[in-house]
């Protein structure tokens, strides 16, 4: 293992230990917030892989959050499965759904792909809203008896779900880091930097995009299932929410730095700080986030982390520019 990889691994382990021990030192409300932070971190890392690396600008990831959530509810309520057992099922089902979508949506380019993913998500939401046995538009709840399968006390259940979210957040980040350093990851990097050149050196763009899309969707499904395991209630509107599961995530990644792993982390922190600061002003935080995102894209494509990178390089070689100019 290289020195930098070792440093990152140790750092991630440290963060994991700190967050995992939170039930011992944090209050119930804080724990929920940290859990939510972890779920957004995971969604942001995944969307960043999709849009920032593979160039697949999806605005329809809520389809997979919602599908995952419904797999949980169908599995537990209709089929009587244990909630935790439904998670691998959510992975498989959303992955297969994504493969099916990809067949059609990959015929669309760029922004049209983006809107296509959105239509797909809307369609799935409409389908679920139209199934009476799943409560239609009103949705359904998890029966208390079924949830007791996770742990007997409510407190312990909340801890377990929190740890699941931590595992997903940090695990996704670690997995993305490992992926970027692996051989298929190199192809992803090449794709990010220059799709034409990547193709000319033999990167199979279609294949790598397909698998990125499917795997990201599958993991997004698992995250969706855990998020709604915490909520205990699902409805098409909440599960397939564009603002909650995609808009927020896009802003996080864009502001933090698209196409940079650190970007997802920085962006998630900025998002939660802004949201908490502006929570008394209704939707103002969305307007602020939107404006910041527009400014970031227009004036600094690399987001906040891009600025940090630039600044560090500049300060390491402070005379470089002056001499040239």
């Amino acid at each position: 293992m290289s020195k930098s990889a070792l440093r990152v691994t140790l750092g991630l382990i440290l963060v994991a230990v700190v967050f995992a021990s939170a039930p011992a030192w944090a209050g119930r409300a804080d724990l929920r917030l940290y859990g939510e932070f972890m779920s957004y971190l995971a969604l942001a890392v995944l969307w960043n892989l999709l849009a920032g690396y593979a160039g697949l600008m999806s605005v329809g990831q809520q389809a997979f959050v919602g599908l995952g959530a419904y797999v949980l509810f169908i599995g537990v309520v209709t089929l009587g499965m244990s909630p935790l057992l439904t998670l691998p099922v959510a992975f498989v089902v959303t992955g297969i759904a994504a493969a099916f979508f990809a067949l059609l949506l990959f015929r669309l380019e760029g922004a049209y792909f983006a809107i296509g993913t959105w239509v797909a998500a809307e369609s799935v939401a409409l389908v679920f809203a139209g199934i009476p046995s799943l409560g239609g538009g009103a949705g359904m709840s998890l029966p208390a008896a079924a949830v007791r399968g996770i742990a007997d006390s409510r407190e312990m259940r909340e801890f377990v779900i929190y740890w699941l979210l931590c595992g997903l957040g940090i695990g996704t980040l670690a997995a993305a880091y490992a992926l970027i350093r692996s051989k298929p990851g190199l192809a992803l990097m090449a794709l990010r930097d220059n799709p034409m050149a990547a193709m000319s050196v033999g990167v199979d763009i279609k294949r790598i995009r397909f698998w990125t899309y499917v795997l990201v969707a599958a993991l997004t499904g698992v995250i969706g299932a855990v998020i709604f395991l915490q909520k205990l209630r699902v409805s098409p509107q909440a599960a397939f929410s564009l603002p909650d599961w995609t808009v927020a995530v896009i802003f996080i990644v864009v502001i933090g730095g698209i196409g940079r792993l650190e970007g997802a982390v920085v962006g998630t922190v900025v998002y939660f700080v802004l949201r908490e600061l502006l929570k008394d002003y209704g939707v103002a935080y969305l307007i602020v986030l939107g404006i910041v995102a527009i400014l970031v894209v227009t004036f600094s494509g690399g987001g906040l982390w891009g600025l940090v990178e630039k600044h560090l390089r500049w300060s390491l070689m402070p005379t470089h520019r002056k001499r040239d100019g």
Binding site: G110, I258, G282, A284, I287, V297, T298, G301
Partner: peptide
Amino acid sequence: TLGPNLLPPILVTFGLAVVIQNTLLM
């Protein structure tokens, strides 16, 4: 935002959409 990279115009108009919706809401 126009250039060889397709993402910036999508992201900027996406940001505009959210800003317009929520400003109208307010």
